[in-house]
Amino acid sequence: MSDTPVVRVVNLVKIYQTGGLPVPAVRGVDLTVEAGEFVAVTGPSGSGKSTLIHMIGGLDTRTSGEIWLDGRRADTLSESGWAVLRREQIGFVFQFFNLVGNMTVADNVELPALLGGASPRHARERREYLLGELGLADRADAAPAQLSGGEQQRVALARALANQPRLLLADEPTGNLDSRNTRDVLRLLGRVHRQGQTIVLVTHDARVASMADRVVSLLDGQIVDDGAIPRVRRRPPGGAGDVVELRS
């Protein structure tokens, strides 16, 4: 694999113009994500996390700056150029799912793989695998509206991974999940990451963030911290934890 970064963003700026008053949402962000890296993006509400990840996925236009994906300049692409790039390279999990309402769960998940050129059989196998991993095997024939928010969110993750995309972008993918479902999502993310999946993920959930190789912290549209999560001392295998402290 080449050492071209999967994502390279240079001095990226987004200023929303709402009825006269400019709202600077992202103010000069530089970010590089190498192949196979898992980067978590955190920060307070309104700090620009969604805007940043939407721009990287071409779902929101930049005001200025550059976006390079896999060594190709992307911010200058047309709408349709972005659509092709997304179909071929990017899986996106939206904060609010965006499933296709008049298609079954199974079809929602298979569609991106089929659009990406996978055979129907391959698309079905991949869908069965992903829904199984997320505890949704028995919901394949349901319509999205019949699912709970947490179920829809997991379907959205399965759909984003259907195509084995070069880059997975996810915006609060566990925001609507209880702790059991979060665990299923974490397990799947961990598994695809170990298989080499590059991930950029916005999250408030420290369990999710702690799985990442690197954490990027946003504040007021700027990166205030970017670095690896250190390893704490490894506990001996089978050894004990230190959750309970019984003072003498």
């Binding site: 955190t42 974490l186 420290a206 369990r207 963030a209 702690s210 799985m211 954490v215 912290s217 205030v224 911290d225 670095g227 690896a228 999560i229 250190p230 390893r231 704490v232 506990r235 934890g241 959750v243």
Partner: peptide, 25 residues
């Protein structure tokens, strides 16, 4: 800012450790 950033990374590494402990348990 530096103190908060360092502490955040530290907490996240503790979280990772707890997650591994939970899995082990």
């Amino acid at each position: 800012m530096a103190l908060v950033n360092r502490q955040r990374r530290h907490y996240l590494s503790l979280m990772r450790d707890l997650a591994e402990l939970a899995e082990l348990a």
